[in-house]
């Protein structure tokens, strides 16, 4: 379960007054849900995701993810929270000097896993995203869609229960974007909670799910089929 309770957050730039992004927002997302966050650029979708993986903390209110509450979590506990999350960004952020296999295995090594189990797990998740045949290649040898699949493989290798995806299809053409979307829906059907920020309304209409619009510092639930644009 993810809960936001009366959350307010502002951006602070050194020479400018604080700009409020979210004000007094409350929200509950149950385990296993698929949720879209929609809204124009700068509306606060990414800020909302950052609150969930606790890169930022709210100015007021609290965010709770599983047993971790933003107003009580210690800095040393944040890595353990992140092990229960998988984060996917629009810019793929793959390590260019490592093979696809190593990029995915890296997430296992970084959390202390070792040995043969890592190898079999990496092969398993790569086959799940349809890329086991490209495991020896390097990121620059892959297309954008393939690179995003690798990122998803890296995000799910530590068996998280939530996937937080920030515009994962933003850099991809519609056909490839739909493939990535099907992959994320597949993960949701296998039991994962998927929260995806997007402004691709076409995709939201094609693959409808619970949709939250972030606008005017508030969050409102909308009908995905009603989205225009």
């Amino acid at each position: 379960m993810i809960e936001l309770s009366n959350v307010s957050i502002s951006y602070r730039n050194p020479d400018q007054p604080a700009k409020p992004v979210l004000e007094n927002v409350s929200l509950l997302i149950e385990r296993g849900e698929m949720v879209y966050l929609v809204g124009p650029t700068g509306s606060g979708k990414s800020s909302l995701l950052r609150l969930m993986y606790m890169e930022n903390k709210p100015d007021r209110g609290f965010v709770q993810v599983s047993d971790y509450r933003s107003d009580a979590i210690k800095a040393s506990e944040i890595p353990y929270l992140r092990r229960s999350l998988g984060v996917v960004f629009q810019d793929f952020q793959l390590l260019p000097d490592r093979s696809i296999f190593d990029n995915v295995a890296f997430a296992q090594y970084a959390t202390g896993s070792r040995g043969k189990a890592v190898k079999s797990k990496v092969l398993h998740v790569l086959s799940r995203v349809g890329l086991s045949h490209k495991r020896r290649q390097f990121p620059h040898e892959l297309s954008g869609g393939e690179q995003q699949r690798v990122v998803i493989a890296r995000a799910i290798i530590n068996d998280p229960w939530i996937i937080l995806a920030d515009e994962p299809t933003g850099n991809l053409d519609p056909t490839v974007a739909d493939e990535i979307q099907r992959l994320l829906i597949g993960l949701h059907r296998s039991g994962m909670t998927v929260i995806m920020a997007t402004h691709d309304y076409r995709m939201v209409r094609n693959f409808p799910a619970r949709t939250l619009a972030v606008m005017n510092r508030r969050i409102v639930e909308v009908d995905p089929r009603s989205l225009q644009g």
Binding site: S76, P79, Y80, L81, R82, F106, T111, R154
Partner: peptide, 17 residues
Amino acid sequence: RLMIRTMKLVGATDGFI
């Protein structure tokens, strides 16, 4: 920084990084 960012993102502790 990309490597460090990725490690933090997947839940590596600061000591491990």
